[in-house]
Amino acid sequence: MTETYTATLDRIVDEQTAVLLLEEDDETVDQLDVDVTTLPPEAQHEGAVLEIGVEASELCEVEYLPEDTHSRNESAQERLDRLS
Score class of each variant (00 low, 15 high):
Leu59Gly: 02
Thr2Ala: 14
Val13Arg: 14
Gln77Phe: 09
Asp14Lys: 15
Glu55Asp: 10
Arg82Trp: 07
Leu20Val: 08
Glu58Cys: 07
Asp25Val: 09
His45Ser: 06
Gln77Thr: 15
Ile12Pro: 07
Arg82His: 12
Glu74Ile: 06
Ser57Met: 09
Val29Ser: 05
Glu3Met: 05
Ser57Gly: 14
Val34Phe: 00
Gly47Asn: 00
Arg82Pro: 00
Val34Asn: 00
Glu23Lys: 07
Ile12Lys: 05
Asp10His: 14
Asp35Phe: 15
Asp30Ile: 06
Val13Gln: 13
Ser71Val: 08
Tyr5Cys: 04
Asp25Phe: 07
Glu58Thr: 14
Gly53Tyr: 01
Pro41Ile: 09
Ala56Ser: 11
Thr2Gly: 05
Val62Ile: 15
Glu15Asn: 15
Ala18Asn: 07
Thr37Gln: 08
Glu42Asp: 15
Glu74Leu: 14
Ala56Gly: 12
Leu32Phe: 04
Asp10Phe: 15
Thr37His: 10
Glu63Val: 13
Glu51Ser: 13
Glu74Met: 05
Thr4Gln: 14
Leu83Gln: 08
Glu42Asn: 09
Thr17Ile: 05
Asp35Leu: 09
Gly47Ser: 03
Ser75Gln: 05
Leu21Val: 15
Gln16Lys: 10
Asp81Ala: 15
Asp81Tyr: 11
Ile52Cys: 04
Leu80Asp: 02
Val34Ile: 10
Glu46Phe: 01
Ala48His: 00
Thr37Cys: 10
Ile12Phe: 08
Thr8Asp: 09
Asp26Ser: 12
Gln31Lys: 09
Ile52Ala: 04
Thr4Ala: 13
Ile12Gly: 03
Ser71Asp: 07
Arg79Cys: 00
Val19Thr: 14
Ser71Thr: 11
Asp81Gly: 15
Asp10Arg: 14
Ala48Cys: 03
Thr17Leu: 12
Val19Asp: 15
Arg72Lys: 09
Leu20Trp: 11
Ala18Gly: 14
Thr69Pro: 00
Ile52His: 03
